[in-house]
């Protein structure tokens, strides 16, 4: 799925692609959005870090509790005041909270 297709997720303000280190590779931003490439790059870095932390926690939790289903971590979302950043492996989408559909966003990212 391309960034243009990710922009079709309900309420999408921006879509971006990043490498395993979190460096921004490509992005699309809706007109009028205050999101800059600099912020998206920072967002990508934090999401890579958060997914790494979540994977560590999921692995530890499964080992400690015997509960399964957390691993592998498929995605992470940071729910901000006005928007939510939803990220998968190497793609992410920023969605307006008013219109957000987390499941649709995660499903779209799973196809990237």
């Amino acid at each position: 799925m391309s960034l243009d297709q990710l922009m079709q997720v309900p309420g999408a303000l921006a879509a971006f692609q990043y490498n395993d280190k979190g460096d921004l590779q490509a992005h699309r931003v809706n007109e009028g959005s205050e999101l800059t490439p600099q912020v998206l790059d920072l967002l990508a870095h934090t999401c890579v870090a958060n997914i790494a932390i979540a994977t560590m926690e999921a692995r530890g939790w499964e080992a400690l509790t015997g509960q399964t289903g957390f691993e592998p971590v498929q995605g992470f979302s940071l729910v901000g005041l006005d928007w939510s950043a939803v990220v998968g492996r190497n793609h992410g989408v920023v969605v307006k909270n008013r219109d957000v559909d987390y499941e649709a966003a995660f499903a779209a990212l799973a196809n990237c």
Partner: peptide
């Protein structure tokens, strides 16, 4: 610090989306 009115602050929460949970 990069964008004062970027719309993320204050954070409401977060989601970790696992394989089945």
């Amino acid at each position: 610090a990069f964008s004062e009115n970027c719309g993320c602050k204050p954070v409401q929460g977060w989601i970790v989306h696992g394989k089945m949970m």
